[in-house]
């Protein structure tokens, strides 16, 4: 039992640490709905993974990236308002995923685990995926931090100064897709976005610089994982939702009490 908890904790902390900084970008660029759409489509990725017998994480990443590319193309055509487009895609993808899963009757899928996450069920291989994917995401974030931030602050200025804005935008989508794939085991497709945006929004209250906000988001996410896991163990509540409730509680706490921002100019 203790072994299980420790593994869950290690996995959860890895996901929270990565989801934090990326969540900051999702908040800054108002991509929350976009993240939701990608996350909802992840279930379809699971179904297709089973169907074609390929690695589930890989199937999710491929599907998320594919969907992100389709989204960008459709957005450029201005056929319909972006939020409407996202709404259509998010729920069609989720429904399509649920329908596809129902066809897989010879394979037993714990649907609840995919929708809401089951941290206590993660395997050693999952932990490797989380840390492998997590390190890749952090390494890319650190390497491309400046162009990513420059594009987020002002795309036109960034473009005039010679940043490859289109490529950077694509990179950010790829990173979001990667995080969704690794975070799915922890909180499930319906709650992934919350693990990205709630810690980041909480961190906003405490930060003066983008780097501060990204690091605090990681830290707050880790607190939420610890708290959620403890609550789940103590009261036998579902782990994923417990983590999100804990994150929401920290958010309320940060915005209720007048915390001083960390002063540091350097």
């Amino acid at each position: 039992m203790l072994d299980l908890l420790v593994r869950a904790l290690i996995g959860g902390l890895g996901v929270a640490a990565v989801a934090g900084p990326l969540g900051a970008f999702v908040v800054w660029r108002r991509m929350a709905y976009f993240g939701d759409t990608l996350a909802h489509s992840a279930l379809l990725g699971v179904a297709l993974g089973f169907l074609f017998d390929i690695n589930l994480n890989l199937a999710i990443i491929v599907l998320c990236v594919g969907l992100a590319l389709v989204l960008v193309m459709l957005q450029k055509k201005h056929i319909i308002a972006t939020d409407t487009l996202l709404g259509i895609l998010a729920h069609s993808a989720l429904s399509l995923g649920l329908v596809a899963v129902s066809f897989l009757d010879n394979i037993r899928i714990d649907l609840m685990a995919y929708l809401f996450g089951d941290l206590l069920a993660i395997s050693q291989a999952d932990v490797y995926w989380i840390y492998g994917g997590g390190f890749a995401v952090i390494a890319l974030l650190v390497t491309f931090w400046k162009p990513l931030l420059a594009m987020t602050v002002n795309e036109e200025l960034a473009k005039v100064e010679g940043y490859p804005v289109e490529a950077i935008r694509l990179l950010l989508m790829l990173l979001v897709a990667l995080v969704i794939a690794v975070a799915m085991k922890i909180v499930g497709v319906l709650l992934i976005t919350s693990l990205m945006i709630i810690p980041a929004a909480t961190a906003r209250k405490l930060s003066n610089t983008p780097i501060q906000m990204a690091s605090f988001a990681s830290l707050i996410g880790c607190f939420a994982v610890c708290g959620g896991l403890w609550a789940s163990y103590r009261w036998d509540t579902p782990t994923g939702p417990s983590i999100v409730v804990c994150a929401a509680f920290l958010f309320l706490l940060a915005y209720t009490f007048p915390f001083k921002k960390v002063k540091r100019f350097g």
Partner: peptide
């Protein structure tokens, strides 16, 4: 226009 959720000093 910089999104108010993005903390940013002039220096940064």
């Amino acid at each position: 226009h910089i999104d108010p959720t993005l903390p940013l000093t002039v220096k940064h």
